[in-house]
Structures are given as structure tokens and as C-alpha cells.
Design a protein around this nucleic acid. Structure first.
Lengths: 184, 184
DNA sequence: CAGCGCATGTAAGATGTTACATGATTCA
DNA sequence: TGAATCATGTAACATCTTACATGCGCTG
């Protein structure tokens, strides 16, 4: 949980834009529902980090009282906003790519051509489905500038653009490999 | 080092296409020089896995004798080729995207617009440089079908296509944010 | 009353990087 | 002879996922 982990800042960022205090469970829901296309966190990360951020006074815990189930919700503090602001200013690292499809494709000469074609076609279908999802999200959030900031829409566009580029490349690659298969 | 790690197969794959036996050091060189754009491994991974693969008889160790420094080189065995073949046939997983730039951009409403623009411009430059590198590699490997398989060239094209798409998206996004900045 | 969603949490293990230790050889 | 490169390895640490344990409240 040292210098490198982005988990604390994901939590601070989500609490910063949330219209109401959120529980650990809520935060996980937001991550899975809204930013899952470029980020993920598990409960095994979230709950310990919530405790840590509370100890650092970057978030404040509020026990939900009344007849409800045991539940704690969190809000971001001024100190937390400062910490988040500093992190946002730091130049983000180039995300290391570790791509299982590309890896297998690279070693394609050591298996049948049809295997590589199958992997490409399979990934292609999945990226087309993802593309459709991005388009649907973009359509759904159009004009709703209060709930969805322009920044959030930019990340959706990035996802869409990457899907498109991948699909184009994959389809071309399949054709290249089909020609290769015939010349054998 | 269980079911999920791809490290053993990276090593098997590299030994499978290498024209000569390779040492752990050599393997690291190949990874850093040839597949670093979509995969990385550290010595802390490589040396233990080499021992493990030797124990499983998927690779064979050969002590380099003579007046040379202490050095062991490895070759892939029939068992190793079988293992690699099985892995290559398995459908690769969709690589999880964990993108620090997109993450910061998503929270852009919590900092100055200029900060997001700076991050985008910075990344844009880096991707342009990477694009130039891919183009140079593609030019250098053109026609050399013996040393560079068509598969290896496809992975370079993927890298180039992704860079292009990123740069296009980033430049558009910068313009969007500059307009946003003016209307404030 | 069964099952699902809400809610919190931990332990174990997988995976990986970084830093360090060690020493040979090569070349300027 | 000093620096760079070749070469092997490990210990410590950081990060993250998975599986499990627990239990409430609502709904069919």
C-alpha cells in the first residue's frame, strides 16, 4: 500500500464526485459499474484502504444509525481533497502493456495458423461487443453534463477508439494469416 | 507460479524460436529488446522459472564448459514444446486494462482543466515517439521473413495501430478541453 | 423460508518488482 | 586499472486476487 498503489486515489476520487456518502460496498459498485473499462479493485483492496485513509484523516467514517444493518459510509475530507489534488497533478505513468493475445500471436509460428486466426477472431468479437457497449454508454450520457462530466465521456471515447483500432487491425491480420495459410 | 502466470510460456516460446541455446541473461535481453512493447519480465521471475522448467523437464540445461565464465544455457525439450503448444491453443484472456492516464482524466473535474490537458499532451508525445519506433522496426524487418516471422510483424502493427488511435483521440480530447477552458 | 442482494472483513496465496550481493570478462 | 557488460541469484517487499466467513433484510 505504499507509494505506487493507485487504490487510495481511486477511492478519494470516487468519494470526491459522489453526490452522497458511500460505503465500501457502494464504492465497489461504482468501480464495477462506471470505471470497470479501465480500472478494477477487489474488496480485498478496498476495505483495508478505507481503514488506512480514515487513519490518515483523508476520509471520514460515518456509522449509519437507526434500524439498518451494520454499515459505514465515508466522505472525503479537506485533507483528502488536497492529497487527491496533488496526485492528480503528477504526470501519470505510461501503463505497462501486458497483452496475452499479442504474446500468443508473437509465438504463432510454433502452432497452426488456424489457432492464431481463431484467437484473433475471438478477440475481435469481444472487442466489437465492447464497442457497442461504449456507444450505448455515450448515447445514454449525452447531454447529461451534471451527472456525467465531459471527462467521463472522454474516457468512454478513448475506450471506443481503442476498440475500433483493435478491430480494424485484427480483421486485417486475419486476412494476412488466411493468405499465409493458403500458400502453405 | 501456478496456473495463471505466463512467464514459463514466454520462456518456452523464446527458446522455441531461438536459433541457439540461451542463458537466463540472454532471455532477458530478448524480452527487453524484442517483446518489451507488450511484455516484460524481471530476473526475479526468470531464474526461478528456469529452475522450475528444468525440474519439469520442459527445458534442458547445458553448462557452458571451457575457459568461460559460469554460464548455463537452455534448450526446449519435446515435453516443453508440447506444453507450449497446449498453451498456445488456449483462448487468451482479455487483458485487463489498468490505465493511469484514463484514471486521472476521469477525475479531471476535481482539478484544473490545464492539468488534464498537460497529461494528455504529455502522453501524446510519448505515443508519437513510440509510433516512430514501431515504424522503424517495421521498416527494419521488412522482407526478413527468416529472422522475423509474419507473426512478429503483426504484433508491431498492432502497437502502431494502437499508438495512432491513441494520438488521434488525445488530440481531439485536448481540443475539447481547451474549448471547455475558454467557456469558464 | 429460501434465495438474493447488501454489507464487512480476513487469510492465504499468486504474482511481480526492486534492491542487493557476487564475481568474471572485455575493452578503452 | 577502471568501467561496462555479462551472468546468476535471492530476500524483501509491494500489490492484488480468490476464497472464505459472517450475518442482515427484503421479496417471492
Amino acid at each position: 500500500m505504499a507509494r505506487h498503489s493507485n487504490t487510495p486515489f481511486v477511492i478519494l476520487g470516487i468519494l470526491g464526485i459522489a453526490p452522497r456518502p458511500l460505503s465500501g460496498y457502494d464504492i465497489k459498485q461504482v468501480i464495477d459499474g462506471t470505471i470497470s473499462h479501465f480500472w478494477s479493485e477487489s474488496y480485498g483492496q478496498i476495505y483495508p484502504v478505507l481503514k488506512q485513509l480514515t487513519a490518515e484523516k483523508k476520509i471520514a467514517a460515518h456509522a449509519v444509525s437507526g434500524s439498518e444493518r451494520r454499515k459505514v459510509v465515508y466522505t472525503i475530507t479537506a485533507r483528502g481533497q488536497k492529497s487527491l489534488g496533488e496526485w492528480l497533478e503528477e504526470t501519470p505513468e505510461l501503463s505497462p502493456r501486458r497483452n496475452a493475445l499479442t504474446l500468443k500471436l508473437f509465438f504463432g509460428s510454433q502452432t497452426k495458423v488456424s489457432v492464431s486466426i481463431r484467437h484473433l477472431a475471438d478477440h475481435c468479437e469481444r472487442f466489437k461487443a465492447m464497442r457497442a457497449q461504449y456507444s450505448a454508454w455515450l448515447k445514454a450520457t449525452a447531454g447529461e453534463n451534471e451527472r456525467y462530466t465531459p471527462y467521463q465521456r472522454l474516457t468512454l471515447m478513448e475506450g471506443g477508439a481503442m476498440c475500433d483500432a483493435f478491430v480494424t487491425w485484427a480483421e486485417t491480420s486475419i486476412q494476412t494469416l488466411e493468405k499465409l495459410e493458403k500458400t502453405r
